[in-house]
Design a protein around this nucleic acid. Sequence first.
DNA 1: AAAACCTGCAACCGCTCATTT
DNA 2: TAAATGAGCGGTTGCAGGTTT
Length: 155
Amino acid sequence: MAEPVLHLQHGKNMDCEKKGVWSPEEDKKLIDYITKYGIWNWSQMPKFAGLSRSGKSCRLRWMNYLRPDLKRGPFHPKETQTVIRMYQSLGCRWSAIAKELPGRTDNEIKNFYHTHLKKRLGTKPKGRSKKEEKAKQIAKMSQKKPLLTLVQFKI
DNA sequence: AAAACCTGCAACCGCTCATTT
DNA sequence: TAAATGAGCGGTTGCAGGTTT
């Protein structure tokens, strides 16, 4: 693999990170850089690629939009069935569900669920989300310390 | 024609987990 | 073993474009 090249310009403040929608130029910079040097460190990569973005933002953009193996487009009925089936057994484990659907990202599946399936699937899944896990943990803790006020969540 | 409302999706934020030092 | 750091995940938000009034 080629050595990463620093594209920083002298005197230019690259610390002020840009936010919001990505421009085609930024996309191109990221694609070009990853094609050339690969993914080696998300937090360092943006400044080497000449991008005023956080590493997190670059990673998200690449994973959810720029990766060449992404399918995009509407969900096939078979994919929809898989999402429903997986959601009912795993819950909001979007990344785990995404592994069953090659070419689809966790973000895409999450959005698809919220916009298309949420109304259809009124029932609660078997699995639990992180939030629910935490709530359960808090409840467990407060059982040990009865003096603490128990906050109840209406789920 | 335009204002108000709705919908879908890209992106951000805060957190946890895994790895390294 | 603990602290620091980077990667990944899920919840949420904000905006653009479409639809309705």
